[in-house]
Design a protein around this nucleic acid. Structure first.
Lengths: 134, 134
DNA sequence: GTAGTTGCAAACTTTTTGCTACCCA
DNA sequence: TGGGTAGCAAAAAGTTTGCAACTAC
């Protein structure tokens, strides 16, 4: 499937500029309000559309778990997960929690770190098998 | 502030059982539908309330980024974040991406891992300072 | 007995989408 | 000029909440 063509509009330009001009990891709504100062007619739908485009183009990151709803885990122990980029399935990983990561992060940040959450993205065995056949 | 007292109702019991009987990291809606097979009068609001209770009691995990909305980052390079558990602020961490983690995860899972996302939870310098004074 | 919990429905929040006019390449 | 994009508003999807009846302790 051919990649959809993308245009650089002034809205998109402003949204990207706003996002790059801050280190605060803003929400879509915050970006909307900032960008509106420059383009008063901007609409929120346009912000969302452009954020999605920019994300697909690899120009920005979205910091979310990937879906709009929460998933729950009956195991309250900290453990790692792998999300399949093909089918979206979430699997537990049988691998020990790397405690040293907290220590390293604490040095990097200079204040207390209590724990971390780590998610891997890849293919689940089932989807990998399917890929092999193509 | 005293901890609110919690009761074990049959709804809560069933919700927890359903969640513990699967490894599929279900959504609230899936849990609702499963639990409804046992308690036909169950309502979705009750499921959400109990999931939140169970989470606060530390009996289950919620796999989400912590808020109901997405945050965006103008830096598309993979890098780590620290979320302040006091004020919710998200900061970039100046620490190299640990590539070996992908390798370890790949061994644990037995199929391809492409990348990972790592978030630390702790106190930002500002909130840590405030804590010191108490 | 009483304070926490339920079921129900309405409200809320964030995000997506349908449509027409518009404008970038 | 043609097809992706903007603005607007309505809809969707997930989650929360107010309330009266109920129930666990």
């Amino acid at each position: 499937m051919a990649k959809k063509q993308r245009r650089m509009t002034k809205q998109k330009r402003v949204i990207l500029d706003v996002l790059r001009s801050t280190t605060s990891h803003p929400t879509a709504d915050w970006i909307y309000n900032e960008a509106k100062k420059i383009l008063p007619n901007l609409s929120l739908g346009t912000v969302y559309r452009n954020l999605n485009n920019l994300k697909e183009e690899g120009k920005i990151l979205e910091l979310s778990y990937g879906s709009t709803y929460s998933r729950f885990d009956g195991n309250p122990e900290n453990h790692y997960h792998c999300v399949c980029v093909e089918c979206g399935k979430v699997a537990d990983l049988d691998m020990p929690v790397v405690e040293e990561l907290d220590k390293k992060a604490q040095e990097a940040q200079g204040s207390s770190i209590f724990y971390h959450r780590l998610e891997f993205y890849g293919l689940c065995p089932h989807c990998e098998e399917k890929e092999m056949k193509n």
